[in-house]
Amino acid sequence: MALLEVRDLKVHFPIKGGILNRTVGHIKAVDGVNFSIEQGKTYGLVGESGSGKSTTGKAIIGLEQITEGQVIFNGEDITSIKNKTKDIRKDIQMIFQDPYSSLNPRKRVLDIIAEPLRNYEKLTKNEEKQRVYELLELVGLTPESIWKFPHQFSGGQRQRIGVARAIALKPKLIIADEPVSALDVSVQAQVLNFMQDIQKELGLTYLFISHDLGVVKHMCDEIAIMYRGRYVEQGTKDDIFENPQHIYTKRLIAAIPDVNPRNRDKHYVFRQEVKKEYEQAYDEYFDAEGLAFGLKDISDTHRVALPERG
């Protein structure tokens, strides 16, 4: 059974307008998303900014109201915020995008990492400190860090503190909302590899939200491409990278830069071809509002939003 199952998830934000401030329309941030994640796997959610990938993550953990659909975690329905009982909250944690604003600037590292422990576990001061030391060691920070404030750390170190806080309760699922996009490229790899290490060590499941295809390729087992609140293509890593079916996916993958400078011209020609195909076939692949169609099975793992033909 899947650890997390999301069925037809919709998150709509009302647009208020007019004299009486009535709802005049909806922004469909997430519009009918289905997926499931197996225990121990990493599921990547990719899309341009504004495609609704972060909103999906936030809706699952309960930071956004779900308009419609179902979220099932470990066999329990946690769609409404009310159903997110303390025990379930404990099992789902989040790593935030911005390591600068996600740590309270007025708190010491001890207080930051101990916050979830204080909420869920009755520990004595010494046990608590002990646990924080262990977590700091796990994320590779020195024990002295415990008395420091967030601003005394670099971005990468701060993100490690964020990770330490997220794994403090030994959760089952971690929603990583662009965990490295605010970091230096040299630090990105460091944090990503470290995330993979603790995944093996603690048996974590990741919902990995990113706009960086390179990072996603490195991290994920399964990948979904989102565009304007809908899925465009979903499949295993190989399905997406070796056999992209949708023109949007094709164009995204063509945009990944090639490290070999000798191929520069060839790559440029290829990109131009994909661009041409995208522009020509745009009307075919997207409906009148510019949204993707419903998903169709191509193979057991691969689903693509292909146009209805015939």
């Binding site: 953990i61 309960g62 930071l63 303390k86 909250r89 404990k90 789902i92 944690q93 989040m94 935030f96 995008q97 911005d98 604003s101 996600s102 740590l103 309270n104 600037p105 708190k107 916050e115 979830p116 909420n119 869920y120 964020g162 806080r165 309760l169």
Partner: peptide
């Protein structure tokens, strides 16, 4: 609106404790 307040929420802190402690 800052992430640290949202983070506190996902970590299981109650609204009252987020208001007064965070």
């Amino acid at each position: 609106e800052l992430d640290y307040a949202k983070a506190s929420k996902t970590l299981g802190s109650s609204d009252i404790s987020i208001i007064f402690k965070q």
